[in-house]
Each structure stands twice: as C-alpha cells, then as structure tokens.
C-alpha cells in the first residue's frame, strides 16, 4: 500500500506514486482548475490588473495621450495624494459621504429589521408586501430618479403637500437638504435587499426562544430587543457592511439627482469627484489617488465595523 503525501485525506485509494505527487501539486480533483479557469482569468483581467493599474497610475504623473504615443509618465511618489488631500472639493465630498452614511446606515438597519420582523409573521398579502418592498431595488436608479426629481421639484407634490413648510430653496438645490434627501432616496431604494437578508436570518432564530420569552412575560418589544436583535447579529453585520460599501461608492444618485455635485458641491460624493477629475477633466492620476484612498478607507472601516459588531 502506498502512503500518499497528499495534504488532504483521500477517502478512496489512490494507487501509484505519480498520482500522489499530482495530488500534492494540484489537489484531489485538478479538473477543478480547468472548471474555474475562465472565471479566474476573468477576475485577473477585469479586476486584478485594473486594480494594479489604478494604484500604479496614482503614483505617476499620468494623463491621457493619443493611443500608441509614448509619453513620459514620471513617478511622482505621493504627489497626487497630497494634491487630493489638500483639495477642498475632495474633502467636502468625503464629508458629504459621511453625512450620507450617518443617515443611511442606521435608518436602513432599523427599518429593514422592523419590516422584516413584521413580514415574518403569517399575515394576509404577505407576497404582495414582499414584492412591493422589493420593487424599488430592482428598478434602475435612472428610472426612479426621474420620479423623485418631479416629486421634489420646486412645485412638486411634496412641496405642495407641505405648503408653508416647504423648504426654500427647494430640496435638491438646498445645501443642507440635498445630501440627506439623497440618503433617504437610497435607503428607500435599497431597503428591499436588506429586508430580504433579514428575513432569511429571521428564519434561523429558533421559535423556542420567543416562546420562552413570552412565558416569562416579556412584551413584544422586549422580545424584539432581547431575542430578535441578538439573534440576527451576523445579518446585521452583513447589512451594515454592505450598506456602508454601497454608500461609500455612491455615484449614480448624486450624479443624476444633483447633476454634478449639487449646490456648492454639497452633494458630491468621492466617486463623483473622481469621475469629474478623471474622465471629464482628464486627470486620471488624481482620480486614481482618490479611488485608492476611498478603497483603503472603506477597507479600514469595514474591518473595524466587523470587529465591533462581532465582539463575541
């Protein structure tokens, strides 16, 4: 009997030294490499290489030249980053995104959990409710933005309903209201996904916990706080991280709702600024620097988030 040096235990006999070496090198089912190869190639081309290129660009004095022309693109170290960090527009955009996240993330978590809990019980028309909460999520931002623009325009329905309370200047051209309104919009639009995630997580909370809580005389609210919330902790982590990442990478909504940054750049997001500097103004190096900063920031906060939320 040949002893194999395979790293993984082999349930079936693998005779022959040649087979065991192959196993050590390539794993038990090397055909898996063939199966996964197209996807791996795709990731390398469309993800890894551009990512590397983006980082490279951020460290060089890069600009668009005619294709085929060779231009000197000198290494400039951290110059681009310094430029970016001292640019008021960029700093403003990060602040804006911070405002957005402060509104969007807690609102999303609370609403999604509440609505999912409500949906989790046997009620009539459950399918209807589920579908209706999901509809904004699957609709293109472009489509729904149009409606919101109309609803919140100066003579729009919302202002008419508010009458004297209507803000002036109107919502989306109002410096203090523009970003919060975008936050509400995105919350509305994305909520369906998070409700679904919470619904899935709620299925895994054992019913007995609720029953014993009820026997102990806990009110519905207390049940919610002491059984539901801890019970769906992994889902909460996921929701927070997903909402955070989506929010940090916000582009379409600020672009469409406030056409290029809003009043005094009050609703510009970092990615919007990246787009403006990179594509509209052709400063790809500065744009890349912004992008890298954004990714690093997102990574750091995500890790911190994860650590905080899963403390046990």
């Amino acid at each position: 009997m040949t002893t194999t040096t395979a790293p993984a235990p082999a349930p079936s006999r693998e005779p022959g030294r040649r087979r065991s070496r192959r196993t050590a090198l390539l794993g038990r089912q090397p055909l898996g490499i063939a199966f996964a190869a197209p996807y791996a190639l795709f990731l390398a081309t469309v993800f890894a290489y551009p990512l590397g290129l983006a980082v490279w660009i951020s460290f060089h004095d890069y600009f668009f030249a005619a294709p085929g022309a060779t231009v000197p693109r000198p290494f400039v170290g951290f110059d681009n980053y310094v430029t970016v960090l001292s640019d008021a527009d960029v700093r403003q955009s990060f602040v804006n995104v911070g405002i957005f996240l402060l509104i969007n993330v807690p609102l999303t978590v609370v609403l999604a959990l509440l609505l999912a809990t409500a949906l989790n019980t046997a009620i009539r028309g459950r399918t209807f409710f589920r579908v209706s909460y999901y509809v904004p999520y699957i609709t293109a931002s472009v489509a729904v933005v149009a409606v919101w623009l109309v609803l919140f325009s100066k003579d729009g329905l919302v202002n008419q309903l508010l009458g004297a309370l209507a803000p002036d200047p109107s919502w989306l051209v109002n410096e203090t209201l523009a970003m919060p309104l975008i936050a509400v919009f995105v919350t509305w639009k994305q909520l369906g996904l998070y409700i679904l995630l919470y619904l899935a997580a709620l299925q895994n909370v054992p019913k007995e916990l609720y029953e014993s809580a009820q026997v102990d005389g806990a009110t519905r609210w207390q049940q919610m706080r002491n059984v539901t919330v801890p019970g769906v902790r992994p889902a909460t982590t996921l929701v927070v991280i997903l909402a955070f990442i989506t929010g940090a990478n916000l582009f379409t909504e600020p672009y469409l709702l406030t056409g290029g940054g809003g009043p005094d750049g009050a609703s510009a997001s970092p990615v919007l600024v990246m787009y403006q500097k990179g594509i509209q103004q052709g400063n790809a190096d500065v744009a890349a620097a912004i992008g890298v900063l954004l990714v690093v920031a997102v990574l750091i906060v995500s890790l911190v988030n994860r650590r905080l939320l899963e403390r046990d």
């Binding site: 993800f47 660009i57 990478n249």
Partner: peptide, 20 residues
Amino acid sequence: AMLLVQLVPFQLLMIPLYVM
C-alpha cells in the same frame, strides 16, 4: 478573490478599465 471583488467599487477600476 471572489469575495474581494464585491468589496472594491467599480469606480476605482473604471478608469484603468476604460484605458484597457
């Protein structure tokens, strides 16, 4: 890598992708 892809914003890759 599959997990990481979902983390990185498309917008960071969009300029190199555009170039490519």
